[in-house]
Amino acid sequence: MVGGTAVTEEPASDLFAARFNDAGFAVLAFDHRRFGESGGTPRRIVRINEQVADWHAAIEYAAGLPGVDPDGISVWGFSLAGGHVFHVAADHPRPACAIAQPPLVDGRAIAPNALRSMTPGALLRLLGLGVADALGGLAGRPPLLAPAAGPRGAVASLTTPDAMDGDRAPDPEGRHTNWEQTVAARIALQVGGYRPGRHASRIRCPLLVVVCDQDRSVLVAPAVQAAANAPDAQVVHLPGRHYAPFLESHEQAAEAEIAFLRKHLDHHGSRDSR
């Protein structure tokens, strides 16, 4: 299990991991390198190829754990990591099934909406910061950071109407005080070109795609279209915005995902440990 761009392991997975564990499934939640409790420097930099490689390493690590059936592994990702699920499930032979929860599957399709949510001045400042960050990285300078989310007018990676729900969704009680919600600004130059949904036709395991019908961050249509291109995919529509699975639609999301896991993993046998 992995969270979105700057959503680290505990706030990303705690709500769902506890439910999966109670249902009898072992859970391995991890941070991509350069984020959270994982190593890697410089920090806060999103490199897509590195993150996908981290998934492959985590799958193989999980397969070698005591009591884990190596043929009974599922992958779960949210937002940007939900997009990675498409990539990983297409390329790695091991997953028995996969769950993508409001996934970012087509950066090109969502870019116009993201740009409309920004003021012209904030957009120019963010792009300037992204270019400076990218050039600084080539020169070995520390990353220039931007908030992962902000209100319209802020110089932040995402300023869609539901972007700020991230503050109250994965960590409503503010328990994760070390959760740094920033990202290297060069991500503004990357996400528009990331289109993991294009891998959908190569996914051979069952795929559950969870979408939120009022999502203004990754949008609904790209994920539904990508799911339609997968050989064995199911789409669950939830009411609410991007973070609804952590908020008002949590029960519906958790029940759908547990039912999916039971259908595709129970015959492998599960364990009551996290």
Rank of each mutant, 00 (worst) to 15 (best):
R108K: 13
A111H: 12
P112L: 06
P112C: 09
A114N: 09
A114E: 05
A114C: 02
S117N: 15
S117L: 03
S117K: 06
P120A: 11
P120V: 08
G121T: 13
G121M: 08
L123W: 06
R125Q: 15
L126F: 06
L127Y: 14
G128K: 01
G128F: 00
G130I: 01
G130H: 02
G130Y: 02
V131P: 01
A132M: 06
A132Q: 12
A132W: 01
D133S: 14
A134H: 13
G136P: 04
G136C: 08
G137L: 05
L138S: 03
A139L: 15
G140V: 10
R141F: 09
R141G: 11
P142L: 09
P142C: 07
P143Y: 07
A146F: 00
P147L: 06
A148D: 07
G150N: 07
P151Y: 01
R152L: 04
R152Y: 01
A154K: 03
V155W: 06
A156R: 02
A156D: 03
T159A: 14
A163W: 04
D167A: 15
D167W: 12
A169K: 11
A169H: 06
P170D: 12
P172L: 02
E173N: 11
E173W: 04
R175M: 13
R175F: 11
H176F: 15
H176K: 06
N178C: 07
N178E: 14
W179C: 12
E180L: 08
E180M: 02
Q181G: 02
T182R: 14
V183G: 13
V183Y: 08
A184R: 07
A185H: 05
A185R: 01
R186W: 09
A188K: 00
L189Y: 04
L189I: 04
Q190A: 12
Q190S: 13
V191S: 11
G192K: 03
G192L: 13
G193H: 10
P196M: 02
G197D: 07
R198C: 03
A200W: 00
A200C: 05
A200T: 05
A200H: 04
S201I: 03
R202V: 00
R202L: 05
R202N: 04
I203D: 03
C205Q: 07
P206E: 09
P206F: 10
L207E: 08
L207Y: 01
L207I: 08
L208H: 11
V209N: 08
V210C: 12
V210E: 09
V210D: 06
